[in-house]
Design a protein around this nucleic acid. Structure first.
Length: 554
DNA sequence: GAAGTAATAT
DNA sequence: AATATTACTT
């Protein structure tokens, strides 16, 4: 044990005095490195023979902090052995080889880095980083004895800074030294749980801090009724707080404010360590500084960073409420009449521009277009594919029933609970899974009637019962090929068939069959031409007049 | 110029 | 990933 507590106290210039074991068969390069390292105040023990180095390492009394080991074709066997012995110690491999498998093996055996010779001064100077890294990330308590003092000294350094109030950017070191919890690196070396820093890039003491993360939420507030709805450069409402309190006292439905937030760059903290072997020029210094603080809705509108920073483009946060308004407007207008400007009017949301709406509408439509055809495929599975049908029968798609006035739910209950994007663990979010699309539920479904005032488009917009509940209706495969057989024989499609709604279905289907000229009730799809032809041919009708053939069969 | 769409940028 | 922007067309 080399480093005592006393040593620690004297360890002022941290990297200074770190003990380096250097193994290089090439005597010249060994000497060069040695002198360089010594010029950097490292204490260097040089070896040209693996066995000597091995015994030096095994002899713990020497207490090396870091090793630099040269690998060549001649010595790699011994080197691997060395690596295993020196697991506790951060070991930097250097080599003239460009052999990927060797690199891989070294890294796998716990080497922190594999660098090509000759090493630059920077790389040499920064080898201490591996020591610190290892000291902090050795995976718990098994910090080797020689590294423990390093850890302690770093901790004390940091504490010192905190106490002195020297909380400047350098203190971020502490943050960055803390292992990120999500970072589960399956490095083969059991002890090296976290990626080692790469020496090259980091100059000592230099941390680039991303100061740009001043993400103030700007609440736009503009008169939607006044003149230009498109105002790209809306004036920023600095009285958002007031208007909120006002709005609560106002009697008429006040225009809602759109939460518009400023875009802040996302810095990727993710690291890939796949190419650890070729770590030569890896950048591990990527600043993970701008950990996006959760958006603060509550109008922190002052431009803390820059006067006209608010001029920056802002994004509309399509909160569930806002989206609901949007959907309501769309439904109210009718899908085919829903154009951005009208939607905008109906929404009465301050700060929202037509462009915002248009963009959202575009997405909305795309969503419908992409999702619904898939629904259709499910709805109209191929004949004889009963397994598939049963599968889908478990996930019925049915209109929100307009048939039970007593059951009319407030809109808030119709919508499945919405959790902000990102809150869903599995990535499901507002736009919904095909089965529980948050916004396929018409906001004003109570206005819908089965036969009148219904937009054709609504056919394609099936609605989901709240998750977990038994759907009011079985899947509507009624028109599918043998629909009548199914219907007559009353074969239950799923466990929810014994539903009080059954007689309603009964009625609806009967009407749909008997009055084919009427629009189909919500949730019922017209049969595909194919299935109709199929059914007809089953009934012995194989010749279809061409004028029918060509036209849409309803 | 509004609207729709697709591609692309942020 | 969500939203904005842009370019193009209708």
């Amino acid at each position: 044990m080399v480093c005592t507590a006393d040593d620690l106290l004297g360890w002022k210039d941290f990297p200074k005095g770190l003990k380096v074991l250097l193994l290089d068969r090439d005597h010249d390069s060994a000497m060069k490195m040695r002198s360089k390292l010594e010029g950097m105040d490292y204490i260097v023990s040089t070896f040209c023979d693996e066995n000597e180095a091995l015994s030096a390492i095994s002899n713990k009394s020497r207490g090396y902090h870091v090793a630099i080991i040269e690998v060549s074709t001649q010595n790699n066997g011994e080197v691997f052995k060395l690596l295993e012995t020196a697991k506790d110690m951060p070991t930097i491999m250097i080599s003239n080889l460009h052999c990927l498998s060797t690199m891989m093996k070294c890294i796998a055996l716990g080497a922190v880095e594999f660098l090509q010779k000759p090493l630059s001064d920077d790389k040499l100077r920064n080898i201490w980083q591996h020591v610190v890294h290892k000291a902090f990330n050795a995976g718990g308590e098994d910090v080797s004895k020689s590294l423990k003092p390093v850890k302690d000294s770093v901790i004390s350094m940091l504490q010192l800074q905190l106490e002195k109030g020297v909380i400047d950017k350098q203190v971020c070191v502490k943050e960055e030294l803390r292992p990120e919890q999500e970072n589960n690196h399956d490095q083969l070396s059991g002890s090296d749980k976290y990626p080692a820093p790469s020496t090259p890039q980091l100059k000592q003491g230099e941390r680039s801090l991303d100061d740009r993360d001043c993400h103030d939420q700007t609440n736009f507030s503009a008169e939607p009724e006044s003149g230009d709805h498109d105002g790209e450069c809306k004036s920023v409402d600095t009285t958002a707080g007031n208007s909120i309190s006002e709005s609560t006292t106002r009697s008429s439905p006040p225009p809602v404010e759109a939460v518009i937030k400023e875009e802040h760059e996302s810095t990727y903290g993710g690291r890939n360590q796949k190419n650890a072997a070729s770590s030569e020029d890896k950048d591990h210094t990527s600043n993970t500084t701008s950990n996006a603080v959760e958006p603060n809705r509550v109008s922190s509108r002052h431009d803390s960073c820059g006067t006209k920073a608010s001029k920056k483009k802002s994004k509309v946060d399509w909160t569930p409420e806002l989206h609901k308004k949007f959907v309501q407007a769309v439904e109210q207008l009718g899908v085919d009449q829903a154009i951005p400007s009208r939607i905008l009017e109906l929404m009465k949301v301050e700060g929202l521009t037509r462009h915002n709406v248009a963009s959202h509408l575009q997405k909305y439509r795309m969503h419908r277009r992409h999702i619904l055809p898939k629904e259709d495929e499910r709805k109209w599975p191929r004949l004889g594919d009963s397994a598939q049908r049963n599968h889908y029968a478990q996930k019925p798609v049915m209109a929100y029933p307009p048939y039970h006035p007593s059951q009319t739910l407030p809109a808030g209950q119709i919508y499945p609970a919405w959790v902000p994007p990102g809150s869903y663990p599995n990535g499901v979010h507002m736009w919904g899974s095909p089965y529980y699309p948050g916004w396929q539920l018409p906001a004003e479904s109570w206005q819908w009637r089965p036969y009148s005032g219904m937009h054709a488009d609504t056919w394609g917009c099936p609605v989901m019962p709240p998750p977990g509940s038994c759907p009011p209706f079985p899947r509507n495969d009624f028109f599918h090929s043998t629909r009548e057989n199914q219907y007559r024989s009353n074969v239950p499609l799923n466990s929810c068939d014994l539903n009080p709604a059954e007689e309603v279905i009964d009625k609806v289907v009967r009407e749909a069959i008997s009055k084919p000229w009427l629009p189909l009730p919500l949730g019922l799809k017209p049969p595909s031409t194919e299935s109709v032809l199929n059914e007809l041919s089953k009934q012995g009708i194989s010749t279809i007049p061409s004028h029918i053939k060509g036209s849409d069969i309803r």
